[in-house]
Design a protein around this nucleic acid. Structure first.
Lengths: 152, 152
DNA sequence: GCTTGACCTCAACCATAGTTGAGGTTTTAG
DNA sequence: CTAAAACCTCAACTATGGTTGAGGTCAAGC
C-alpha cells in the first residue's frame, strides 16, 4: 500500500500529494497546512484533488531547509512571497535568500558559542556561589539592596 | 509602583514573588508556571503568599540558562529532580549538569555548522537545478521512477 | 483602620506547528 | 463495474511555554 499511485509518474508531469509527500519527506497533513498558510500552492483536478507542478518540490525543499535552520514559517512566508508561486525561483532570488538564511544561522551559532564560553567558564569557576558569574548574572542582577550572597 | 515591597529585603531572608521576578527577569506568571511543573518551589506565608529562599534564585537562573540553550522544560525537570528542592545544588551536581548541557549545546552547534556548510555549498553551486545537492536532497530523495529533473 | 499595591487561584486564551479523525469523494486497478 | 487506496474538508486535538483576566485576599504604609 501507499505505492499504487504515488510511485509512478503522473500524467502531465503533475504530482499527487502523496507522491510529493514521499519525495520531500513532508507529511501530507503538513502539505495541507503549508498550503493553508500560503507557503505552497497546487492546481486541482476536476475532482478537487491537489496536483503539484514539479518545481513545487523545490519550494518545499527550501521550506524544509528553513525549518532545519529554525526559521519560523511566518518568516519563510515573507521570503516566499517575493518568489512567484507559479515558477521556479530564479538563481538570483535563491542566492539572496540563502545568504540571508545563512546569516541567521550564523547568528544562532554565535549565540551558542557565547553560551558555551559562559557555561565553560562557569564549570571552571564554581559559579554556584553566584558571585560575578556572567552566566548566572546576565548583566543586570546582583540585588543591590541585599544582605544577599557575599559580594567578595 | 512595583517597588514598595519588591525593592527592600524581606524579613527572614525570604523573597516575595515580585522580588524574585525582578531579580531573575522571569515574569511572575512564568514563576507560577514553573512551580506548577515542579521545577521550583516556595514556602507560603499564613496568607498563602509565596516566599522564596535565596537559593531558589540559583535554581531559577539555571533554568533560564537551560532555556537559552534550548533545553525543554521537561528535560530541565529531569535534571532538577536529582537536585534537592530545599537547598543549593552541590558544586558536583552543577558540574555534572553543566557539562551535560554543554554537550547538548555543542551538538546543536555541530548541526548548525553542517547546515551552514551545506547552504554555503549550495550558494556556490546553483543548486536550484536539484541535481546532486546535499541540501535539497537530504539522503533519500531523487525520485527513482521519475522522468523528473534530469539526473546528469 | 483603611487604602492600595502586591498577591492568590483558576480557567481561558495565545502562538507555533502541525496531527488526527469523521464523514464523504475521486481515481485507479483489475 | 466495483473495490480499495488515495484523496477531500473541517473541526478538534496535541504539545510547548507561557500570558491574561476575573474575582477575591493579603500586607504595608499613612
Amino acid at each position: 500500500m501507499g505505492e499504487s499511485r504515488a510511485s509512478q509518474p503522473s500524467p502531465d508531469d503533475l504530482l499527487a500529494v502523496g507522491e510529493v509527500s514521499e519525495r520531500t519527506g513532508v507529511a501530507v497533513s503538513a502539505l495541507h497546512y503549508y498550503e493553508r498558510l500560503g507557503l505552497i500552492a497546487s492546481v486541482r483536478t476536476d475532482g478537487n484533488q491537489r496536483r503539484y507542478p514539479r518545481h513545487m518540490l523545490r519550494r518545499i525543499s527550501l521550506l524544509v531547509v528553513a525549518k532545519r535552520i529554525g526559521i519560523p514559517l511566518a518568516d519563510v512566508k515573507e521570503v516566499f512571497d517575493t518568489i512567484p508561486l507559479d515558477a521556479t525561483p530564479t538563481h538570483q532570488a535563491w542566492q539572496h535568500t540563502s545568504r540571508l538564511w545563512r546569516e541567521q544561522l550564523r547568528e544562532r551559532k554565535r549565540a551558542i558559542e557565547q553560551l558555551d564560553a559562559e557555561i565553560t567558564g562557569c564549570i571552571g569557576c564554581g559559579c554556584l556561589s553566584m558571585k560575578a558569574c556572567a552566566l548566572l548574572n546576565p548583566g543586570d542582577l546582583l540585588g543591590e539592596t541585599g544582605q544577599g550572597p557575599r559580594r567578595l
